[in-house]
């Protein structure tokens, strides 16, 4: 029961990934792509934790914490670079 619902959730997250990647490809401006990247990384945190449940690996939570930190810093750096003020 629990695993069925979670599999559906996993599928939905996968679908939303595809949609965000479409936005990432059509872009229009660099900033649009960065916004898509930001959304992608935040959802990835949820995805990693879901994977932690399915594979029953507690350690993946540490991975997602580190991922959250590094993606935050990455988005900030790209934004500052866009402003030409790095």
């Amino acid at each position: 029961m629990v695993n069925t619902i979670l599999s559906i959730a996993l599928l939905i997250i996968g679908l939303s990934f595809l949609l965000v990647i479409v936005r990432f490809l059509i872009g229009k401006s660099v900033a649009d792509r960065v916004v898509a990247l930001d959304a992608l990384t935040i959802s990835t945190i949820g995805l990693i934790v879901l994977l932690a449940h399915f594979l029953d690996r507690k350690i993946y939570i540490d991975v997602s914490i580190v991922y959250a930190i590094l993606s935050f810093i990455g988005v900030i750096i790209v934004a500052k670079y866009l402003e030409k003020s790095l």
Partner: peptide, 23 residues
């Protein structure tokens, strides 16, 4: 005890420097 170690932790420590630098 867990995956990770000196190099990985050191890289995260250095990333705080980036944050300090750009902000």
């Amino acid at each position: 005890l867990t995956p990770g170690g000196g190099f990985q932790g050191g890289a995260i420590l250095a990333s705080t420097f980036i944050l300090l630098l750009i902000s």
